[in-house]
Design a protein around this nucleic acid. Sequence first.
DNA 1: GCACCCGGTGAGAGCGCTCTCGCGGCACCG
DNA 2: CGGTGCCGCGAGAGCGCTCTCACCGGGTGC
Lengths: 341, 341
Amino acid sequence: MTETAPRPTLEAVAARAGVSRATVSRVVNGGDGVREPLVERVRRAVEELGYVPNQAARSLVTRRHDAVAVVVAEPETRVFADPFFALQLRGISKELTAHDNQLVLLLTEGRDDHARVGRYLAGGHVDGALVFSLHLDDPLPGLIQRAGVPTVFGGRPGWSDGTTDVVYVDSDNRGGAREAVRHLAGLGRTRVAHITGPLDQTSAADRLDGYRDVMGDADPRLVVGGDFTPAGGERAMRELLDRCPDVDAVFAANDLTASGALRVLRERGRRVPEDVAVIGFDDMLPLAEQADPPLTTVRQDIEEMGRLMARLLLGGLGPGDAGAAPAGVVLPTTLVRRTSA
Amino acid sequence: MTETAPRPTLEAVAARAGVSRATVSRVVNGGDGVREPLVERVRRAVEELGYVPNQAARSLVTRRHDAVAVVVAEPETRVFADPFFALQLRGISKELTAHDNQLVLLLTEGRDDHARVGRYLAGGHVDGALVFSLHLDDPLPGLIQRAGVPTVFGGRPGWSDGTTDVVYVDSDNRGGAREAVRHLAGLGRTRVAHITGPLDQTSAADRLDGYRDVMGDADPRLVVGGDFTPAGGERAMRELLDRCPDVDAVFAANDLTASGALRVLRERGRRVPEDVAVIGFDDMLPLAEQADPPLTTVRQDIEEMGRLMARLLLGGLGPGDAGAAPAGVVLPTTLVRRTSA
DNA sequence: GCACCCGGTGAGAGCGCTCTCGCGGCACCG
DNA sequence: CGGTGCCGCGAGAGCGCTCTCACCGGGTGC
């Protein structure tokens, strides 16, 4: 393998096309203000030489990088194995690609890493950051805000209660939860339980709030803690059946939790939905569809959330720097009715 | 929010420390050949001004970027939701971070994207690439090789049969499979079945080869196709029980498949391991540990594979450009004995 | 004591690009 | 037909950094 071949420069292309560097630059960057025959000649020269602009040189003068950092705090391995995050990342990737931006992935591992990430962002290596801050007590968001880099958060940050002007994209967790619980109530169910997610995440907390919006202060024993995993769902469901044998509906904080609950219900001989109706959250496919019975759930368009995050960031980076950017965008959810409720 | 503050340059630091740009540069890059008092003075100036080197300017002259691309072909969403890949990525991230390299994530979506990735890599924006090529017919590897970028593959590429000099990191899929099947045979099982993975992936094909190494051309009905998912495992197990009711052991291509198989065995009233012994592959936690019964499986250190890929790439980028780099590194696997076999 | 060497430092060129500026030519107006 | 404006293009100045090279001073060796 030979050393990297000497790549052609603007100069070389200019020479070949018989024009000046400036003209080549203009053509490469859109070709405005250059007459057609010249454009054509330059294009051909670029083609023949296989010219690719040197991004470093370009960034040096434009101070733009066409790159966006995606910052993921990863206290647990879970975060990554979560299809939820994977889908969001995919949406982000698509949107960035469409705008010729690169995705720089920053995984943080413990406290020390936060400083590293902060330094990197402050270093002006990227034009903006997309940040997934999962926990209420995460110091990362603060660091990032201080770095002065345009940022969009994935999910409502815990410390943002509408007061500060952070930009984020979230699902309507509370509204979706309300709709789910109302649906259960509409089915005539009176003992509607909720298996929560980890409550230090705003999504889980918001879903609980939505449940409470409808159920008021119903029997507090109907609310039991889960952790967004099937195992947690099983545990919670067992506890629930033990202390409230008369439960006739369960709103689970997500589909994984619901799948665990379904398994326990089956094990304990409760029919779904006849004896106990079950609703999940996410509409995670194929999990929800192939559950037994197929799971009624609150759908959120996760990939779209990712896309939107990227679009918001890229948009904010553009011309209008003014306060046109919305503080938070909350995407609607829809109830998908299958068999379980 | 004000525009990005004017960041201090080398020049500014030099002025403040009362030295030349060159000296500051030397200090910033390790400080060799600069006397202690000066080093100290420069360090202080850097600190006070909050100086951060401009990577673009640096890259322009050094032609290094301290960035590595991670290319993931993503024919299905599965790829990403797969904890396997997530873990590998984590290992990569850790190793890159340790060497102050950035991770540029390139997800490809369909054929058109391949050209884009090829162009990006050929564009010399990164120092190297880590590529996950999952399928035999993937055109991506070829494109990348042609781009002339140092590359390490994750998993043995399908077209590499030891002849070409591609660098890759893989698990000893074949050896691990052999060990698993031998263990089953050692238990006195004579009707040992294998549920395969998708055979267009080398890992799945290699595991099947390992099975055959031990079983020879046993009853071909004992080999049934799966797809690395629990649902596929269920399907395959049903088929297996239907056509070979006397099966007394199953080697599943991975833990997800095994979990599906376990469920069907339970459903059909077969005791594990008494009636049918089951072995998986991956040792994916907590899945394997919490399976019912806890799953005996072939462990591979996935995160370490990621680390190693990064280390290999970074090492190859260093001084020794010569053929010191090994063509392929195959990590050993170990059989983890739990209850299921 | 003189030539030499060598480690530490500064001066300056240049990486490949963008962008401002100015010049020349052409159209349009009076 | 001369003046004015504008459009298309080229010249040239840097962006912030690294790296080579020359320079300077203080040992060493004879």
